[in-house]
């Protein structure tokens, strides 16, 4: 009996994970069906863009600013030891644009917007507001999910572009202060070494992460049961699952995109 328990537990975890992944994949298919041709509520999309994109701007800029500074502080030892001052722009740009920018900003976005969305939809589900929409012949996917999906993808792409820029600005200033790497050296090295594909990679990753956060948070929100504690569980599951999915997709996309 005791020998089979770990196996049963692993099996149970696997079945639960498959159930959630299957549910999220099904939701993604339903979203795409409503995107071609577009069937979404435009006023709701506008509200979502304002709330998810514009109102996240300050916290994302603050995060990106600190990321740029930390990057230079961490790089200082190696740049100083090997005399790579002229390569600081490339190093900071490559790391920020291809990896740190999209991933860290996506995790921040998941904590702020994904958690909010899971809580919002979860509360609507347990208070029967979603049923109320169905009764008014309003498709909850078109009205609630598709605008959030589109808004999260657009917002995270835009915030990642802005965040990358801010992180590089703060890195260039910090490089100037700590290592005497002047602005011209930093930026000319960065633009000379980075290719358009590096920028494209960042945008593709941001779009993928936005889609992951949207689908995960909407899936957990709409499958909430069990009142207020259920909403808490949904938020927790949405944030944890989004983070795991972001790292897995980051690995796969890095592997595929080089």
């Amino acid at each position: 009996m005791s020998l089979t328990r770990p196996i049963r537990r692993v099996g149970s975890v696997f079945i639960d994970a498959s159930y959630e992944i299957g549910g999220a994949a099904r939701l993604l298919v339903r979203i795409f069906r409503r995107l071609v041709p577009p069937d979404l509520d435009i006023p709701e999309l506008r509200r979502c863009l304002l709330r998810m994109g514009y109102r996240s701007l300050s916290i994302m800029i603050a995060t990106a600013f600190v990321v740029g500074i930390i990057l230079v502080i961490q790089a200082f030892v190696f740049v100083d030891r090997y005399g790579l001052r002229s390569q600081l722009g490339w190093g900071a740009g490559f790391t920020t644009i291809r990896e740190l920018g999209p991933v860290l900003l996506a995790l921040m976005f998941s904590g702020r917007v994904g958690a909010y969305t899971a809580a919002e939809l979860g509360t609507m589900e347990v208070t029967e507001q979603v049923d109320g929409l169905r009764c008014l012949a309003i498709d909850p996917i078109s009205y609630l999910v598709v605008p959030r999906f589109v808004a999260m993808v657009i917002s995270l792409v835009a915030l990642t572009i802005i965040g990358n820029t801010v992180a590089l600005l703060s890195a260039s200033v910090m490089g100037d202060i700590m290592m005497d790497v002047d602005q011209h050296t930093f930026w000319s090295n960065l633009f000379a070494m980075l290719t358009p594909w590096d920028y494209a990679t960042s945008i593709i990753k941001a779009a993928l992460f936005g889609a992951i956060i949207a689908v995960t948070s909407c899936h957990y929100g709409l499958t909430t049961t069990g009142g207020a504690p259920g909403v808490g569980r949904s938020v927790n599951n949405a944030v944890v699952s989004s983070a795991v999915a972001i790292f897995v997709v980051d690995y796969l996309s890095t592997f595929v995109m080089g």
């Binding site: 347990v126 208070t127 029967e128 507001q129 049923d131 109320g132 169905r134 009764c135 008014l136 012949a137």
Partner: peptide, 12 residues
């Protein structure tokens, strides 16, 4: 459903 009005237990 268009011809059906529902008042839910939680008001909704």
């Amino acid at each position: 459903q268009r011809n059906c009005g529902v008042q839910f237990q939680n008001d909704a």
